[in-house]
Simulated assay, not measured.
Amino acid sequence: MKVSSKGEYALRALLALGKNQGKVMTIQEISEKTLVTNSYLEQLLLQLKKFDYVQSKRGAKGGYLLHKDTNEINIGEVIRNLEGPLSPMGCASITKYEPCPLEAGCQLKPLWSLVRDTIAAVLERTTLEDLLLNRINLLEGEKLDVFKA
């Protein structure tokens, strides 16, 4: 899994909106906070609106604001919606499985599956609120449940 600029910038926009929750922000204001160009930001905000993370307000005092509470915005879901599967390889993907001619007896598939499960475990348990409150550091040193004996 590789998070592209699309996913990174979308998360930056959500963080900017989350820091100003309840306040309508213009694209220019969001751009200044995220260092993302207005034109690219417009495209991203339309996608975030499509997935119901943000809403837009028209008019002279228009702009964007979060449509959900920060504790309801799951980072794993955002990344999947914008970037696609979390798996590093198609053969290990749960949502977009792609068969491989070498899959039978493949010794790499368990590794790719573990990578997928580990990434998913971290992203799925992280909300926008966790990022805003810097609670991501609680994961350091924790044993993840995805490791199977």
Rank of each mutant, 00 (worst) to 15 (best):
G59K: 09
N81C: 05
S87I: 09
R58P: 05
V78M: 05
L82E: 00
L66V: 08
I79T: 02
A60F: 14
H67D: 10
T70C: 10
E77R: 12
M89S: 14
N74W: 03
M89I: 12
G63E: 01
H67S: 14
G59H: 11
S93E: 06
T70V: 14
K57P: 00
A92V: 05
E77M: 08
K68M: 08
N81D: 11
E77A: 10
L65D: 01
R80V: 04
K57F: 11
D69T: 11
K68D: 01
K61L: 08
H67T: 04
N74P: 02
H67R: 14
D69Y: 13
A92D: 03
H67K: 15
I75V: 13
E77F: 04
N71W: 13
R80F: 07
G59E: 09
L66D: 02
G59M: 11
N71S: 13
L86C: 01
G76L: 05
L86N: 09
S93C: 14
C91V: 13
P85R: 14
N74E: 09
M89C: 15
A60D: 12
D69H: 13
E77K: 13
R58C: 01
I73Q: 01
G76V: 02
N74Y: 06
D69A: 15
N81I: 02
I73P: 00
A92L: 03
I79V: 15
D69F: 10
N71H: 15
I79R: 04
A60P: 07
K57N: 11
G63Y: 00
V78N: 00
G63A: 04
E77N: 13
G84V: 09
L82Y: 03
I73H: 01
K61F: 08
L65T: 12
G62H: 05
E83A: 09
L82V: 05
A92C: 15
E77V: 06
K68W: 02
G84W: 05
M89A: 15
N74S: 11
S93M: 10
G62R: 08
R80G: 04
A60V: 15
G84A: 06
L86V: 07
Y64M: 05
Y64G: 00
L86H: 11
P88L: 13
E72H: 11
T70D: 07
N74T: 06
L66N: 03
K57R: 15
G59L: 12
L65W: 07
G59R: 09
C91L: 09
I75S: 03
P88M: 12
L82T: 07
T70A: 10
P88E: 09
G62V: 08
G62P: 01
H67N: 14
V78Y: 00
N81K: 15
S56M: 06
K61M: 08
I79D: 01
P85S: 15
I79W: 01
A60H: 12
G84T: 07
K68N: 06
Y64H: 10
T70E: 05
S87L: 05
M89Y: 09
G62I: 08
E72T: 06
S56E: 12
G90T: 09
N71P: 03
S93G: 04
P85I: 06
N81E: 09
A92M: 03
A60C: 10
S93F: 03
G76S: 05
E77S: 13
M89G: 03
G62M: 12
Y64C: 04
I75R: 08
